[in-house]
Amino acid sequence: MRRYARLFALQLRTSLQTGLQYRWDFVVEGLTGLLFALLGLLPLWVFKRNGAAVPGWGFPEMLVVVGWFTLLKGLIDGAVNPSLIVVVDHIRRGTLDFVLLKPADAQFLVSTGKFEPWRVLDVLVGVAICGSGFVLLGRWPGALDLAGALLLLVSAALVLYSTWILVVSAAFWVVRLDNLAYLFMSIFDFARWPVTVFRGAVRFAFTFIIPLALMTTYPSMALLGTLRPATGALAVAGALGYAAVARLVWRRAIARYTSASS
């Protein structure tokens, strides 16, 4: 375990060094991240000024959701997506062999292949937006609510990561997947608003098929203290099951890659 923690730290440092290789891009990237996070607030401001409302969600509550979304997006863009792009590249160039020959867990190695350090800014901005929502509400989440929300954050991260593993596994069958990362991200954009803005079949899909509700709406509700514990528990269980399936598929994919029937 300690060995993996050290490895993790080393991979993180390597990513930072790589980022610093292109100085100009590195600086602009940081600024752009900040700009994007703040621009995300603009529609919300327009929304409020026009006196619009989403049933069940006041403006401060919407802020909490958007803040949570920003936080999670920072997490994906910073820790999940870059590695996805790296591993797809490995598969295409045939250098995944080197990873498989390392005496460490291959899933761990590919999942920590690359980080985008600047995305920490998004996470911080997200926390700030969430916080400002609570300032407007004039109250703070209880310890229990916070714990529940954190638990759901872990679940959401797990679901995202598992989706990622599934996507990578798919790359063993279909080689050209560069675009898939972008597709993945653009679908995640639907989690920007509370799931209640969708109706009918779309809401069902975003709750159960592509569980976007689990990622932003439920944790926000937990923070706000409006989530029923049973729903939360179900969400956590679902996330765990999903992760187990993803791990299984990954093992199958690697076995297939090495037994290489074609």
Partner: peptide, 25 residues
């Protein structure tokens, strides 16, 4: 690839969902 790129254009739909709900009143 072009089809996949087209599918990544989800922003208009994301915002449609928000404003459509907002204009209910």
């Amino acid at each position: 690839e072009m089809v996949v790129w087209m599918l990544t254009t989800t922003m208009p739909l994301v915002n449609l969902a928000l404003w459509h709900t907002a204009a209910a009143g």
